[in-house]
Design a protein around this nucleic acid. Structure first.
Lengths: 338, 338
DNA sequence: TTTTATCCCGAAAACGTTTTCGTGTTGACA
DNA sequence: TGTCAACACGAAAACGTTTTCGGGATAAAA
């Protein structure tokens, strides 16, 4: 069990001062070649590595970014993390990932933890509960202090800060247009309850597309899924309508996949009798049968962009760019279900 | 933009010494009630929070755990992370998550980063490339220094250390037995190349089950998928065999899902003409049609257990438990595909 | 021989904490 | 009035770095 060395122990062992060791290790010209070589050899042999805590304390920066996501067991967020990690690593920044579990209290705890010196900046996607309760005080507090922070995907509406989002309205519009362009007119939507902004926005896009094409909006074609109850059954109801839709836009991948399953049970052929389009570039879509056409959300890009914005704030001290919003555009990924 | 306060600024503002402030904030009896109240009120008002860097440096522990995973865009690892996070949080530990991207060099970098004081202990699932190249020196080094570390899932074989794994051989055995118990005799396997240990182990379980039931092992029924080429096609070949198997064990979820797709293309009814069983409690299995029977791998449990073992090492200084291995058992989750 | 420049190196402060050990003041008591 | 305990607080060291500044030694120049 070889002991852990640090600058002071090296200094003691070699009968020099800590300052000399520090300088020697950075190839300072102040140190004679002889001592320099000696110290470097010793450091290498004993595998000296500077303590990052001490460095952070001294330099007043940690070279790590904080990342708060509601969930990690979710393909989209995994992609985001991947994107963040890639650009952070390129600039020698590390990541500290925390889960809020869509819980306000946990989110506050995370914020507190991370902002007590552990990280230089923060990337956050806000918890559902935070939206429901409308309590953004923890973020406002941070912004007052000028703490660098960038929101992504689920962003607070009425806070003026940097954010990167996907254009959900346009996404819903594109999805619906895709169905319309395939000659469909009777188009249903599987959406979320109205307080979930992403679902709501996508639904707005859906309505916009229908209106523009002068298609009547049939109320019974809109289902607001209640996740507390049996999802399959709610979807089946739509499919059992006497005059059921020929096209179906699901605001997320899960609803789309379940719709596929239910259609199969009811012997509805896809895409001949029913076209289905989902949302999110997830895991599932590629492996359902038929494979699912979806709207790609570009999680990787979103993470990368958010990290880039944050790093810009950290590196260019010129804080002119206040309250920028970057919008990631979506696109249709055509597969077998339409 | 309210300034950030710390003990020294509080001390200066209140005309007391830093030590007094520190003690007052911890309700020390050494401090008079009057000063104590005053300091606490001030701290609360200015929202003082101790700097965790300084604390870590001082206490020589960071209260954070390092976690290195090969991939995050993978449902199984997401579950593991979730498990780790849950037990770590319960003990007031934080998480620092790094991705090795199945890359040896990146793994080494991560190790370096994390072990320079940033974390108190390490949880790691080893990168594929590390196995291929057989270079475990970075881990051995750490173990020599007595650095607390627990491996999970993909663990080095010839290093004596703490690990938690799933019993892959037994899993493969159970999967095959499930098919046999359904009356099947002609059973194929979709496996990985032999150097991937998990695939290899599962295949061993498969062979064991066949042997025990005196079923002849048909070589053409074993496919070692080469991921560099078209996976669908390789699987289709097996299904196009004149005397094709009636049961199919896929060593991971992806292969199983693709097999389903290919079977559909060939108009093979599932499960009537072909039963398929996968491995891993992933995302996909629930949303394919038919839904997939799989072997549940219990990622959450694995993460939780690994974290528990590591925390035990950290908290109970009694380091008697050297080289423990905890095995997580698998079980069949029956769905529609069998 | 004295001045000056150059070369090497060390002391000390700083980052923000905690904790041990003093120490000055007060009041009680002999 | 002198002694002693109790009380309330401060100084300093420590965690592991980096950096500024100063200074001793040597050699070259005056």
């Amino acid at each position: 069990m070889s002991k852990k060395v640090n600058i002071k122990t090296i200094a003691a062992d070699l009968n020099v001062s800590p300052s000399t060791v520090s300088k020697a290790l950075k190839d300072s010209h102040e140190i004679s070649e002889e001592t320099r070589k000696k110290i470097q050899a010793y450091a290498k042999y004993y595998n000296y590595k500077p303590n990052s805590l001490a460095l952070s304390l001294r330099n007043q920066r940690t070279m790590t970014l904080g990342l708060i996501v509601p969930e990690i067991v979710h393909h989209f967020f995994s992609r985001v993390i991947y994107g963040v990690e890639s650009v952070a690593n390129e600039k020698d920044y590390n990541l500290m990932i925390c889960l809020s579990k869509d819980n306000l209290e946990k989110e506050k705890q995370n914020i507190e933890m991370l902002t007590n010196g552990s990280v230089d900046g923060l990337l956050v996607s806000v918890a559902k509960e935070t939206f429901e309760k409308g309590d953004f005080s923890h973020f406002e507090h941070l912004l007052e202090q000028g703490f660098p922070i960038v929101f992504f995907d689920r962003v607070p509406d009425n806070i003026n800060t940097d954010k990167v989002v996907v254009d959900d309205v346009a996404g819903g519009y594109k999805a619906t247009m895709h169905l319309i362009e395939n000659g469909l007119k009777k188009i249903g939507i599987l959406s979320t309850p109205p307080h979930v902004t992403v679902g709501n926005d996508r639904e707005r896009g859906y309505r916009k597309a229908l209106k523009e094409n002068k298609i009547n909006i049939e109320d019974s074609y809109t289902i607001h899924i209640n996740e507390k109850e049996d999802i399959s059954q709610q979807i089946a109801q739509l499919l059992k309508l006497p005059d059921r839709p020929k096209g179906l836009f699901a605001v997320n991948e899960k609803y789309a996949a379940i719709a596929l399953q239910e259609a199969k049970k009811l012997d509805i052929n896809i895409p001949e009798e029913l076209s289905v389009i989902g949302f999110t570039d997830g895991y599932i879509s590629k492996y359902t049968s038929p494979t699912l056409t979806t709207i790609a959300q570009h999680g990787y890009t979103m993470g990368a962009k958010a990290a880039e914005m944050l790093l810009n704030k950290l590196l260019n001290k010129t804080d002119n760019s206040l309250g920028q919003t970057y919008v990631i555009s979506t696109n249709v990924v055509k597969r077998e279900s339409t």
